[in-house]
């Protein structure tokens, strides 16, 4: 898709989604869309560091969790929710920069398992320190408006997509992709690899922290360790890969597909979606590294070729 056309399409989609709460009064629809939008944000945020900079971060949930933890605490203590979310993002980024310099000494799969360990360290520690369930005060529950959460999720998802789209065409994004393809060569041609990787991580974790804040704002009660669970990382990874890793549209497409199937299948068979997604994911890694986006592009090209030959005849 060309830049202008896809931007127009994106704006139109966002506008259409913005009218949904005005038209649809059903909470289940809003909840479903909320989940899609949260997933878009989380997946796009993971996509920055993993898809563009090529660093498979398996500890992504830690940053989502830190955002949730901070936001929830500040918000319940009386801070405005937007301020609390920004603080959550700041904490996530701060932690990312703290561990980033060390973690980025690791390459490829070692970075992946190293960050997986980091995520687990945080999850277990938070589970130990904050073992009790976190529930909103009664007054807040009474004033709970789903539409507020929905609009926040929409704004965040739109921002995430915009960030990734802007990154895609920028020098920054180009440098990140150079690192993904060949870090040594990138370094040799003057790309400051560590600086760019840290930048990618900061961008990525800022969005993840905001998404965590949104999670904290959305849920009435949950265990504080839950947003630290590696399943959040895995969701982001599945969505991004199924949709198309390192693309702007991939995570969006992936999120719609993933959440739809997940919710649909979960009604019938608990956890069955993971069996399907696990296998689908393996198939995509082996056979279709470009994900749904590439599949769509190929189908599109095929169809165009058909049409063209038909016209010529």
């Amino acid at each position: 898709m060309t830049g202008r056309r896809s931007r127009a399409l994106g704006l139109a989609t966002a506008a259409a989604l913005a009218t949904v709460p005005l038209v649809v009064r059903r909470d289940d629809v809003l909840n479903f869309l909320f989940l899609v939008l949260l997933s878009v944000t989380l997946a796009e945020s993971w996509n920055i560091v993993a898809g563009y900079a090529g660093q498979v971060n398996l500890g992504h949930a830690a940053f989502f969790g830190l955002g949730a933890l901070t936001t929830r605490a500040l918000w319940i203590a009386g801070a405005p929710v937007l301020g609390a979310m920004v603080a959550g993002a700041a904490v996530a980024v701060g932690f990312a920069l703290l561990i980033g310099a060390a973690a980025f000494r690791l390459r490829g799969a070692y970075f992946a398992i190293g960050t997986l360990a980091l995520g687990e360290i945080l999850r277990i520690t938070v589970g130990n320190v904050r073992a009790e369930i976190s529930t909103l005060p009664a007054a807040t529950i009474a004033g709970y408006r789903l539409a507020h959460r929905y609009y926040l999720a929409l704004a965040l998802a739109a921002a995430a997509v915009a960030v990734v789209a802007a990154l895609g065409g920028s020098r920054l994004g180009l440098g990140m992709r150079a690192i993904r393809e060949d870090e040594e060569a990138a370094e040799a041609s003057g790309v400051g690899a560590l600086r760019l990787k840290l930048l990618a991580l900061a961008l990525s974790t800022a969005l993840a922290g905001l998404a965590g804040g949104l999670f904290a704002y959305y849920h009435i009660s949950y265990y504080p360790a839950h947003p630290f669970s590696p399943t959040w990382t895995f969701d982001a990874l599945l969505i991004t890969f199924i949709g198309g890793v390192g693309t702007v549209h991939g995570p969006v497409l992936g999120a719609v597909f993933y959440v739809f199937l997940k919710e649909y299948l979960a009604i019938r068979w608990v956890d069955f979606h993971l069996l399907i997604f696990g296998l689908l994911f393996v198939a995509i890694v082996l056979l279709l590294p470009g994900g749904l986006v590439e599949a769509a592009a190929r189908l599109g090209a095929l169809a165009r070729a058909r049409v063209l030959t038909a016209i010529r005849k």
């Binding site: 498979v56 390459r107 490829g108 799969a109 992946a112 398992i113 895995f234 990874l237 599945l238 890969f241 068979w269 608990v270 956890d271 069955f272 979606h273 993971l274 069996l275 997604f277 696990g278 296998l279 689908l280 994911f281 393996v282 890694v285 082996l286």
Partner: peptide
């Protein structure tokens, strides 16, 4: 080698999800 480790990690990951879900069933 480098792609190998990374791809194996991803495949192992998908396999892990599938096996875990199958075990739950």
């Amino acid at each position: 080698e480098e792609t190998r480790v990374k791809n194996s990690l991803l495949i192992g990951f998908g396999l892990a999800l599938a096996l875990e879900a199958a075990a739950v069933r």
